[in-house]
Write a protein that binds this DNA or RNA. Structure first.
Length: 426
RNA sequence: GGGGAGGUGGCCGAGUGGCCGAAGGCGCACGCCUGCUAAGCGUGUAUACCUCACAAGGGUAUCGAGGGUUCGAAUCCCUCCCUCUCCGCCA
């Protein structure tokens, strides 16, 4: 959510900034109109209530029954005015809040202006692509022939876009998760948390998934539980409605969680393999920072996420998004993509964002600074990394001519020193 | 799933219709005092919004959340959420 005061005082700058992320700036005019109305109504209501409060105090002091009754009757008009005022307020507030919640974050000045992802910049490519003296195969073929995935039974029990990892496939994923958690907790200073995978709607408003992106979420209507699309949601909301002691910042968390997404918008996309399922696992990094430290923290976060790909020996690249490809909530965003030799494509395995105070405003996450002033924290997050796609890259990168897969060195301690994944029984 | 208790300021804890934004204690901050330390004394110590210079001052709201009764509610009524506890069940 944008600061309404900033919208008031820097209207033109806000508008032109919004235009760069493809948002129709004329909505700002309506926001200002409603904001003025809201303040006018509040002023009116406050004055009326002050009047009523004073009158009520007098009534309490008046001992004579007749005089008392007269005073009570006299406040009748004030009361009805208050009622009228109160009746008019919700319409304005609801519309204003609704607009405010649907305005995207403003990009940082350093973010290049561009209409869509074709204008993103490749910051750097790290490592080199694996070479083969045979035709590399896609992961779905490799995994099926190794017997480490079962697409058919996954679809049987849960439908399309579900699969079952089995044997060394499941084990490899588990090894990756543990490796990532260990790396971030032991080397990078993040505290591990294991959050709920179902949350209440407020949490999703806090992170910016609601109200705008509800159709990508699974929910239980009976209980008003929502399945998290990423651990970012529960972890960011850990400190919702809190005023943190400034000395505790920065707070760094890493969380492993399953993620659930409807993927309605991407029907027909990436249907082959495990690139885009309704359920997938992810290790997520979340940080809470002082505003002045947040930009540098993003670079650090990116480095931490990238380290995973690096240690796994995967060729990867860093993409800096242009304004047109920023998410609704972020003010600057980097993607990390690993190379999948079999599919011959770059896979987005991490998306690292700085949100400024955009989420903190929605979730009311503040901290008390040295002057005793309460300020909004800056939030950041990034995958560290997303499992299925890392699995794809590992399998396709380390595939051998005979269809087996070498286990990356760094993972072997997590696989009981297993060096190679071969077909069961071989 | 059933029964009982309860949710008050950073924490503990009073408070059953007006004198309560809220006693008291602890903690914390600043000051004073005591030739160290400990103790003692004084003052201060929530959040948001409006007015406004993001000052002072003033106003409004907030005692889990929402709604209601009333001139007036932390206090009464309704709904919801959460916590504890006893029983049942169970990874």
């Amino acid at each position: 959510m944008l600061d309404i005061q900033r919208i008031r005082t820097e209207t033109e700058a806000v508008k032109s900034s919004l235009a760069t992320v493809g948002f129709a700036p004329n909505i700002i005019d309506r926001v200002l109109e409603l904001d003025a109305q809201r303040r006018e109504m509040q002023k009116e209501g406050d004055i009326l209530r002050a009047e009523l409060n004073a009158a009520s105090k007098n009534i309490g002091r008046e001992k004579d029954p007749a005089a008392r009754q007269a005073l009570i009757e006299a406040v009748g008009t004030v009361k009805s005015k208050i009622k009228d005022n109160e009746a008019a307020v919700p319409a304005v507030e609801v519309e204003l809040d609704d607009l405010l919640l649907n305005i995207p974050n403003l990009p940082l000045p350093e973010v290049k202006v561009g209409p869509d992802d074709s204008h993103n910049d490749v910051v750097e490519v790290y490592g080199s692509a694996p070479t083969f003296d045979f035709e590399p195969r896609p992961h779905w073929e490799l995994m099926e022939s190794l017997g480490i995935i079962d697409f058919e039974r996954g679809q049987k029990i849960s439908g399309s876009r579900f699969y079952v990892l089995r044997g060394d496939g499941a084990r490899l994923q588990r090894a990756l998760i543990t490796f990532m958690l260990d790396l971030h907790t032991r080397q990078h200073g993040y505290e591990e948390v294991y959050p709920p995978s179902m949350v209440r709607a407020d949490c999703l408003v806090g992170t910016g998934n609601l109200p705008k992106f509800g159709d990508n979420l699974y929910r239980d209507h009976e209980e008003d539980f929502w399945w998290v699309p990423t651990a970012e949601v529960p972890v960011t909301n850990l400190y919702r409605d809190e005023i943190l002691d400034g000395a505790t910042l920065p707070i760094r968390h890493v969380a492993y969680s399953p993620c659930f997404r409807r993927e309605k918008m991407s029907h027909g996309k990436d249907t082959r393999g495990i690139k885009r399922g309704h359920q997938f696992d992810k290790v997520e990094l979340v940080r809470f920072e002082r505003p002045e430290a947040s930009r540098a923290a993003l670079d650090e976060l990116v480095a931490h996420a990238r380290k995973v790909a690096q240690l796994l020996g995967l060729q990867h690249r860093l993409i800096k998004m242009c304004t047109g490809d920023l998410s609704f909530v972020s003010c600057i965003k980097f993607d990390i993509e690993t190379w999948a030799a079999g599919c011959a494509e770059w896979l987005e395995v991490s998306s690292c964002s700085l949100f400024g105070d955009f989420q903190a405003r929605r979730a009311r996450i503040r901290f008390k600074d040295e002057d005793g002033k309460n300020r909004f924290v800056h939030t950041l997050n990034g995958s560290g990394l997303a499992l299925p796609r890392v699995l794809i890259s590992v399998i396709e990168t380390y595939q051998q001519a005979d269809g087996s897969i070498m286990v990356p060195q760094i993972l072997r301690p997590y696989m009981g020193d297993q060096e190679r994944i071969v077909r069961r029984g071989e």
